[in-house]
């Protein structure tokens, strides 16, 4: 695998929209061609080379291309948008929409990422070593098609509205989450919270699963306790209490059985 290194030159005045920073766009291009790809600063179009030094070399395909952003990416939006293969490593913090609508490959953010990471994600892997912002693995504003596949793993905490309209895939959070988890979730997405959760967990949830290892501050009154189950979740064997809901929502039937959203609380 070949590596292209992007070193930020100077902090831009405005936030940059860098949806061209993906292995798919970089593959098969020379460093000059990569530097000529465009990005937006507000309404103004610039060449990528204005803000980054481009070094190394790209591979012939996306799968053989790794991109390393060496330095602060906290003013970069849409890193890895719609990427299908290959790898991106962000050495610092990143702004919103990291790996949005991603289909494959891997993104590792060594710092924190802002809101909407993994929006509408369909496949691949995002690893966040720091904290994630709000709306992790969610749907775009107004859309009902949230994260549908792939895996997001956060070592730290996540903000509010994790898995909003989540329809598939897995989100694993090492730390705590803020309010609203899996709101409107449908399908078979899975959210594992190793720390504590606050409130409105599973609100308007039609389908999917939430696992909470720590405490849940305020449970939803519309979830009903069903039974205790022994499970192995992300390498941890334990006893969980299963709650089903959100009973205030419509629930489809599959093979005569009503499908509910499931919340598993670890004892």
């Amino acid at each position: 695998m070949n590596t292209v290194t992007l070193t930020p030159k100077a902090k831009p005045d405005l936030y940059l929209e860098v949806d061209n920073i993906t292995p798919d766009r970089f593959a098969g291009k020379t460093n000059e061609e990569i530097a000529a790809l465009h990005l937006y600063e507000g309404s103004t179009q610039h060449a990528l080379g204005k803000f980054f030094d481009v070094a190394g070399s790209s591979g012939p395909t996306a799968a053989e291309t790794k991109i390393v952003i060496k330095g602060d990416a906290s003013r970069l939006k849409y890193i890895g948008m719609k990427m299908t293969a290959g790898e991106i490593v962000i050495e610092g913090n990143a702004d919103m929409y990291v790996g949005a609508w991603m289909r494959g490959g891997k993104i590792q953010a060594k710092g924190n990422v802002e809101a909407f990471a993994g929006t509408g994600m369909k496949g691949g892997e995002i690893q966040i070593d720091g904290n994630a912002g709000n709306y992790l693995g969610s749907a775009y504003r107004g859309d009902w098609r949230g994260m549908a596949g792939g895996t997001i793993r956060v070592k730290g905490n996540a903000g509010s509205d994790t898995g909003y309209f989540m329809n598939g895939g897995t989100i694993i959070i090492g730390g705590n989450v803020d309010v609203h988890v899996a709101t409107h979730a449908e399908g078979n997405g899975k959210i594992i919270i190793k720390g504590n959760a606050k409130s409105k967990v599973g609100g308007q949830m039609v389908g999917g699963e939430i696992y909470i290892f720590g405490d849940l501050e305020v449970p939803m009154p519309t979830f009903e306790y069903r039974k205790d189950v022994e499970l192995e979740v992300d390498g941890t064997k334990a006893k969980f209490a299963l709650f089903e809901g959100d009973t205030a929502e419509r629930h489809p039937k599959r093979k005569g059985e009503t499908i509910y959203g499931k919340i598993y609380m670890k004892y």
Binding site: S43, Q45, A139, Y140, R141, G142, D143
Partner: peptide, 14 residues
């Protein structure tokens, strides 16, 4: 107003 997603990826600049 209630479908911001309808504008996603459709912008054509000035």
């Amino acid at each position: 107003i209630f479908r911001p997603e309808d504008k996603l990826f459709t912008y054509r600049p000035t």
